[in-house]
């Protein structure tokens, strides 16, 4: 699993986030299970933020994040197309000082009531 979430910066109330500062513009990244990944490339193709790529030898390629690429919106389109359920986003993006996440809780799959 490669969940590279970062600590949120402590910021004054009237501060606006700096878009390219990973401590202020926190896009929670996807977790990839390399054992499940079969290198089909569909997640790379559908990612709206274009932050995924394949790596490794040609016959056993796997998906990974492109370097320090930022921009994951936790849309989970990657999860939706993944036949082996090997990739998932489970946290929302967060911008220090822009606004605080309120009245919102953890990610959950559809529940049957």
């Amino acid at each position: 699993m490669s969940d590279a979430s970062v600590e949120k910066a402590a910021v004054p109330a009237d501060h606006l986030p700096i878009w390219d500062d990973p401590h202020e513009a926190i896009y929670h990244r996807v977790s990839i299970d390399l054992d499940k990944c079969d290198g089909c490339k569909l997640c790379v193709v559908v990612c709206p933020a274009n932050i995924l790529e394949l790596f490794g030898p040609k016959d056993s390629q796997k998906a990974r994040l492109k370097g320090d690429a930022n921009g994951c919106m936790s849309c989970n389109n990657c999860y939706a197309v993944c036949a082996s359920q090997g990739i998932i986003a489970s946290k929302p993006y967060d911008f220090a000082g822009f606004y605080e996440q309120k009245q919102i809780s953890e990610f959950m799959f559809p529940r049957k009531f």
């Binding site: 193709v45 989970n76 986003a89 489970s90 009245q103 919102i104 953890e106 990610f107 959950m108």
Partner: peptide, 29 residues
């Protein structure tokens, strides 16, 4: 669409629900 994006439902955040019933208020997610 490219691929089969409908093969499984995804996980999403839950949001607060204030639930009033029988004179009581509850907070649900």
């Amino acid at each position: 669409p490219i691929g089969n994006p409908t093969q499984q439902a995804i996980s999403r955040q839950t949001h607060q629900i204030v639930w009033w019933e029988d004179g009581k208020k509850e907070i649900l997610y």
